[in-house]
């Protein structure tokens, strides 16, 4: 089954026209490129960091075509202000939205299925404020609409066989994953794959019982075209929500890539850890979703 068929199934299911649970077969997951390209930008100007990191990958037009429906999925799951490092930095999200607009996106949706109360999270993260400053009607930030969760059969999943996933994340022409790099008690780090928790429904805590594998299983279905990891600030302790500036390291870094496993693996090294220490990275690599070995990546760094 190809992606187009899958998207059609999801839409049919959500309009009640089909009773069959949409099923995503991992068979068409194109083999990840042998040596994935990772764009890394360092510097104080966070907007420029995003622009430069994406430029390394060939620029935003590689990912967003004119007329595309774009979903930008930051981590804004916690009622915490930007300096506490629990949510994606608002400027990183805003810059991506501006880039997508420049590339001719027909519409941009920004959302997250929050852990704390949704309105508080959206407000405290500072992301909504920044998006509204752009003042473009094509940008729609919205709260999760429970009607839009669609059960999906995860054929490639080893542990997770079926779960409810947010329709817009599945059907977008271009899904951009924008996690923040931070500490997490159970999984050690919360990076790109962990950010998928914000587009799934159901009793999410259940995934914690075999978190690494189940995040990898989700990654067979939730497939960002571009991942931009915000490591401008890195929450080093008391993650994933933190709450003390002492626990936050200012790292002034943005990482971009198309290989969801490779970007996580590279970001892990910024914490002084090995990619093999993160269960979800290992599991996803084993599923053939991407590269784990940093030596085999093309890492291009730019100082801004």
């Amino acid at each position: 089954m190809n992606r187009r068929q899958f998207v059609r199934d999801v839409l049919l299911w959500s309009t009640g026209l089909s009773l069959g649970v949409p099923c995503f077969d991992v068979a068409d997951v194109s083999a990840a490129p042998a040596s994935p390209l990772i764009g890394v930008a360092n510097g104080k100007d966070y907007k420029l960091l995003v622009v430069k990191a994406v430029e390394i990958l060939g620029g935003i037009k590689e990912f967003v075509k004119s007329g595309d429906k774009v979903v930008i999925k930051p981590n804004m799951g916690w009622d915490r202000t930007p300096e506490l490092g629990a949510n994606t930095h608002p400027l990183v999200v805003r810059t991506l939205a501006e880039l997508a607009l420049d590339a001719g996106a027909a519409g941009i949706q920004v959302f997250d299925y929050t852990c704390n109360e949704k309105r508080r999270c959206y407000a405290s993260s500072g992301i909504i404020d920044e998006l509204e400053k752009i003042g473009d009607k094509r940008i729609r930030w919205e709260h999760i609409d429970p009607r839009k969760f669609v059960p999906v059969d995860i054929v490639g999943g080893k542990s997770l066989k079926r779960w409810e996933i947010y329709q817009d994340a599945l059907t977008a022409d271009c899904y951009i994953n924008v996690p923040v790099a931070k500490h997490h008690g159970l999984s050690r780090l919360s990076l790109g794959l962990k950010n998928a928790m914000g587009v799934i429904g159901g009793n999410r805590g259940k995934l914690h019982h075999n978190l690494g594998q189940e995040l990898a299983d989700l990654a067979t279905v939730i497939r960002p075209r571009l991942t931009v990891i915000d490591a401008t600030r890195m929450l080093l302790r008391n993650g994933p929500q933190g709450g003390r500036v002492e626990d936050v390291k200012i790292a002034d870094t943005v990482i971009a890539g198309t290989d969801p496993v490779a970007v996580d693996a590279y970001a892990t090294t910024l914490f002084g850890l090995q990619p093999e220490e993160i269960d979800s990275t290992v599991a996803a690599h084993k599923l053939g979703l991407g590269e784990i070995d940093v030596q085999r990546m093309q890492i291009r760094t730019v100082q801004v």
């Binding site: 852990c115 704390n116 997490h184 008690g185 159970l186 805590g205 914690h208 019982h209 075999n210 978190l211 008391n238 994933p240 929500q241 933190g242 709450g243 003390r244 626990d247």
Partner: peptide, 22 residues
């Protein structure tokens, strides 16, 4: 509690605990 009763990993409580020092 799963980690105690069954040896199953969980820690959802710790993840959500909001005090800056957990």
């Amino acid at each position: 509690c799963l980690p105690y009763a069954k040896g199953i990993p969980c820690m959802v409580c710790e993840e959500h605990c909001p005090t800056p020092e957990k």
